[in-house]
Design a protein around this nucleic acid. Structure first.
Lengths: 341, 341
DNA sequence: CTGAAAGCGCTTACAG
DNA sequence: CTGAAAGCGCTTACAG
């Protein structure tokens, strides 16, 4: 049972492929094709269960209706949920998603971008790892539509959709200060990426605005690829050294946060009495945690929606003036029991 | 900056496209093409940063090096992690992944399969929703390589990679029985799907083998698309009705389990003292839960690996005899504090 | 109102 | 050892 092609329909009807193509693409009117033939073509197409070969169409038109999504890790719930939203919005517009997990490695992202550049996607949504400026610039040079999410490179003028990390972090830190936390530590990752740096800056600014000392010993930056023992080491250093004397932690990602909670539990530290906790992101785990964890929730649906919208705008507008869309969304501060002293 | 094509290389070198294609596809030897030309072609290709257009290649060869992955929900951590493993293994073999979330709706899966059937993928890995026999049979008729994961249809002779749900469920239930649980409830979903039915059967068999009564009132089956209030309703019914008198719950998925834990907490029921808990799957949330949740962990890496392997086997073997691969893997029972009475 | 023809960028018999 | 040609399944000027 071979797939039916345009030609099959044309031959059975004794008309040209041109005609069939025109009709099936809804261009019958503008070419004033007779209603009778129109109907015949449409009926037969349905009968033969005709679906145009997208590959052939893609080769001819240069459009694939496919978006390349490059994120850190689809297994990371943050990106999983974001991916779902992106898929949902893309699907509304007839686009499919090819996804690649970069593991936050620039080399991976580079290879993945180059691979998908080979005529397979109409554009990219990318959460660029540290050091991946080069492949992004390549997209720029080649005039491939793309939009960055979660972070961006200040030195590259590109479309992006991010959240206001500085403000979010400021708010979370300020809340802890107002809840009588005196020595607030911060465990973060990925130094150098603009989103993470902003989170750190927001934390510092909140402290200094409240006339709290910024103690570099209370700031732990983990390597890009961190595992639970990295988090454990950081927490041990923070909690065993008496002079640190911490009573709260801000986790700047849920991946770190989830691991951090495991560590705190295994060290028998009580939340929030011993250590108050606020974390970026809002995975399921935070809702069922005892106590539930105060979260800085990102508007995943909105990020997904906007990034697809901006990308499709760029795809359809390729020839027109490239308008830059740089969108910064608000996070939502979800207060739960982990941050109450 | 247009992409360089085969023709560009051929023209600059004054040779034919044939030659260039042959060389770049590593068929120089078997066509005894001179080393000198070989080198020239390869060097120029590198210099021009040539990458073959996969779409054109796909049209010609009928191969896209792309796998269609249809799962319930990429935002569901179980499928997210599984997706990651599938991506990893596929990537090792030079394959990309287009993913679609069916939301467990047969109609969605059908549309997604039909869409990707239009020449876009070489094969499918599918977690088929209830009632999606028809599109699966379509693949069968069209001789499209595919492999089912997580569940299968007993009446369709297909490749699949699943876990031994009966045994897993039996083991979890048996463990609770041996831990002095007398009245073990089961909250499940998706009646009719073979994996869920097996989980229920395993639960029942363990009870009857231990001479415990199977009380249908203790079995709650939620609709396909369940939200937390469905779970809440079930748990309320189980716990408020005195004659139910339950002291343990088996959750047959982590999605239900995570919601269930939220409900138990909000009802102020203590785990494991009031209610012991065992759940299928092992999301992060179970590790940081207090107490940590006893889990029936699925071998995600193995499922991912095997499903890709089986699929690629089928793709490469298309003409050969279709050997059926039906793989059933063992789960891992991870005992934690939630199930100790 | 309709069709013949070119071409998207490849691969692959076929011929020499 | 190398090349001309056909063709994958479409779309789209162009011509009438």
């Amino acid at each position: 049972m071979r797939k039916t092609s345009l030609n099959d329909i044309a031959q059975q009807l004794g008309v040209s492929k041109t005609l069939v193509s025109l009709v099936l693409n809804g261009k019958a009117k503008e070419h004033r094709i007779s209603d009778e033939i129109c109907r015949k073509v449409i009926d037969l197409a349905k009968e033969l269960n005709y679906h145009p070969n997208q590959i052939a169409k893609g080769l001819r038109t240069g459009k694939t209706n496919t978006i390349g999504l490059i994120i850190a890790e689809i297994a990371n719930p943050f990106f999983g949920k974001l991916g779902r939203e992106i898929e949902r919005e893309a699907s509304r517009h007839g686009y499919r998603i090819i996804f690649c997990s970069s593991d936050e490695k620039a080399e991976n992202a580079k290879q993945q971008i180059e691979m998908l550049l080979q005529g397979q996607v109409d554009g990219f949504i990318i959460s660029p790892p540290n050091g991946s400026e080069e492949p992004i610039k390549l997209l720029e040079r080649r005039k491939i539509p793309y939009v960055l999410i979660d972070r961006y490179f200040p030195e590259i003028e590109s479309n992006y959709v991010v959240v206001d990390n500085f403000q979010a972090s400021y708010e979370g830190t300020e809340y802890m200060i107002n809840n009588n936390c005196k020595r607030i530590a911060c465990i973060s990752i990925n130094a150098g990426l603009v989103n993470m740096d902003s989170r750190l800056d927001g934390y510092k600014k909140a402290l200094s605005d409240a006339s709290c000392k910024i103690d570099e010993d209370l700031i732990k930056i983990l390597p890009f690829s961190h595992e639970i023992n990295d988090v454990m080491k950081a927490i041990r250093e923070l909690t065993t050294n008496k002079k640190n004397n911490i009573d709260a932690i801000l986790f700047t990602t849920s991946k770190v946060g989830v691991m951090g909670l495991q560590c705190l539990h295994s060290l028998n530290l009580k939340i929030p009495d011993d250590i108050a906790v606020v974390s970026f992101d809002d995975p399921d785990a935070y809702k069922i945690s005892q106590p539930p964890i105060t979260a800085i929730a990102q508007p995943l649906e909105e990020i997904g929606r906007q990034s697809v919208k901006v990308l499709l705008g760029a795809i359809h507008n390729k020839k027109g003036k490239m308008m830059l869309h740089q969108i910064m969304l608000k996070t939502k501060f979800v207060i739960r029991d982990s941050s109450k002293k």
